[in-house]
Design a protein around this nucleic acid. Sequence first.
DNA 1: AATGAATGAGGGTTCATTCAT
DNA 2: TATGAATGAACCCTCATTCAT
Lengths: 215, 215, 215, 215
Amino acid sequence: MTGPQPKKTRAPRRRNAEASRSSILQAALVEFSTQGYDGARVDNVAARAGVSKPLIYDYFGDKEALYAAALLEAYVQIRGGEKKLNLEGLDPAEAIRKLVTFTLEHFRRNPWFISILNTENLRGGATIREMHGAAGVQSDLVKKIRRILEEGERQGKFRPGVDPVDLYFFIASLCYFPLSNIHTLRSVFQRPLDDAWLDSHAVEAGTMIVRYLEA
Amino acid sequence: MTGPQPKKTRAPRRRNAEASRSSILQAALVEFSTQGYDGARVDNVAARAGVSKPLIYDYFGDKEALYAAALLEAYVQIRGGEKKLNLEGLDPAEAIRKLVTFTLEHFRRNPWFISILNTENLRGGATIREMHGAAGVQSDLVKKIRRILEEGERQGKFRPGVDPVDLYFFIASLCYFPLSNIHTLRSVFQRPLDDAWLDSHAVEAGTMIVRYLEA
Amino acid sequence: MTGPQPKKTRAPRRRNAEASRSSILQAALVEFSTQGYDGARVDNVAARAGVSKPLIYDYFGDKEALYAAALLEAYVQIRGGEKKLNLEGLDPAEAIRKLVTFTLEHFRRNPWFISILNTENLRGGATIREMHGAAGVQSDLVKKIRRILEEGERQGKFRPGVDPVDLYFFIASLCYFPLSNIHTLRSVFQRPLDDAWLDSHAVEAGTMIVRYLEA
Amino acid sequence: MTGPQPKKTRAPRRRNAEASRSSILQAALVEFSTQGYDGARVDNVAARAGVSKPLIYDYFGDKEALYAAALLEAYVQIRGGEKKLNLEGLDPAEAIRKLVTFTLEHFRRNPWFISILNTENLRGGATIREMHGAAGVQSDLVKKIRRILEEGERQGKFRPGVDPVDLYFFIASLCYFPLSNIHTLRSVFQRPLDDAWLDSHAVEAGTMIVRYLEA
DNA sequence: AATGAATGAGGGTTCATTCAT
DNA sequence: TATGAATGAACCCTCATTCAT
């Protein structure tokens, strides 16, 4: 294209199993979350990862196993982000608000997470049910919530008896839905659902959760 | 209908035509929501509808168009159910609680609705964006909510300034998420998420919404 | 090639399920016996049968089932040939000699029969073991042999106690081996194993069998 | 062998080299005879031989060459067994009977021999035809037979004019067929074809051959 | 001498779609 | 109106073979 070349410069074969593995994994995560399980193409994963198809089969076995690995990777990556969230020493209501904002922001920045969860639920959870170690993958977040609830209760600001997991479900619900369903909502309700809307939605959601918790 | 008709009418005309069409539609709705777009098989639709494949192509054109029709049908059916919801004359808070309970129940009873919405959002809303008449398909519900909010405000029980669409998003979020994500939540958090849990979840969600609205 | 053609004249789609089925079967028989099971290509079967690959899958299911059908067809065809063999009213020794000559000739004329049997035995008989109705496929021949043996015995020419199946094994052995192993024998023993040799071999084999039977 | 050698020797030189080579060869023999040429997997050969795949390519070149080496090895091994057969000083008829029994036993004990011959004949003898030294590989056995025939003739027990190679073909036929075709015969004729049957079959085959030879 | 890493080429199978009646 | 018969185009996966150390 840019001039005659005596030899086609092929990209040099990478000789690094670990690097290959992880680039395949990332490519798979993208492919499965943008295309769904059945829509995903192993060819696309290979191309995106810059490896040949057989290598994928060598490392992961088959499409199903590759998908399972990508799904686990999605959880691992999202958990990694959540670990960076620091809620220590904040006023409980503030901590809750920050948690809500963070959650929505986190989902927004990692859209493949929502997509691959939708994909997995569309599949009836067939894969995650068989996945060793799926449980507990989010325990850190629950611990953080529990601590906030206890602190709020201790300060007499929050009412007792709220289960941290249930509360997490509420928070996640409010952050997940408008992102997960952004396209249908836009069409049906003709709202922009742009960044500004989402920001204010996060604030309102924070308010809602805090009011629900208040003694 | 039963006599010969002058050419040019392309749409099927037999008495059974309408029945065939609607059984195809129902079968497509089931197939697409249980299998996703790429996982859906036109063969399965034909088998479930009890017709031949060419008939489907005759009526709908191609898989994409069939899917679009199924998606619209999903909205039509769900809207039909919502019309039966009567919130007139109730105390505003009660009306809200009833609306929340109804919404969750409605989603629970029509699981293909959530599934096909997830499918469509996974596809980036490509289909619904092109669909004429998608907008306003849920205007009834929004009107009902608006009326409740106004009544609550009039009675001094609800604070003003709450947008009915935004409120619907909140309600839908709380009802949608635990159903949409039931499989992954079960695996990760090891909660049963059974009917009893969902019932109590609906009550709590009602409380949360009402508190959020209270003046 | 031969001139410009306004439209590629495609071979017209045959609209005859039974004809398609049987041409696939014949093509499969040829392919499997010349290439072995693993060497056989469904593509080749399709090309030879003049149909598309999916049609094969439509009719037979998969390669394994196609192979099973071809194997059964091999037996059916060979049995058809054997039915035409008339040994009635001959002198017992003559009948035996004729049977031997016929058997070798029959194998020689239907080389795919030996080849597909070799293929199946190489596979450990996995397919034929599961085949319904494989037994008895050759009962006609055994009956004929039994009758000859009884007649020979009655005439005091043959000794009693010879099992017709065992005798068939001997006859088949002598006819099968030099054809089945023709290539290795030619190379190792450097004999031509041409038609003349085979003809005289058949005569000698007949002699051997008759001597074995004589009282 | 043990000292350094000036370049150009392409064959591996380490002490283990010969061991690797022969374990590959044995593994290949097993793989090719149990799976056929196209069914054989170089991976399996490597695994069974306990070496890496590139080593096989280093030693043998490609799959075809490996197969040729395995085929030759099959003959070499079987010839080695036949050398141990001692027929000296026996009564000619007894020698023949012993030879028949031995042949069947030899085939039975080395089933890969029959299998790889079948494989090669299925392939049309493409490999053995190109193989140098295939001829004469069985000359020892022929010599033994010739000596028996001469002795029998000398004693007036056997008729003259029997070709030792032709006789070998008869003997081999009777021993080869029921083993080579054991699976299809079992299914079609529903005989056990167990060890007892084979033993008595060998005896009967001996009788048949002896009668054929008798003056 | 030996091998872990990697791939081009192709095979079996599926599926949306059309043909011809 | 309705469908049995048929296929082009992919897709998942495998395998003989090579690269680079």
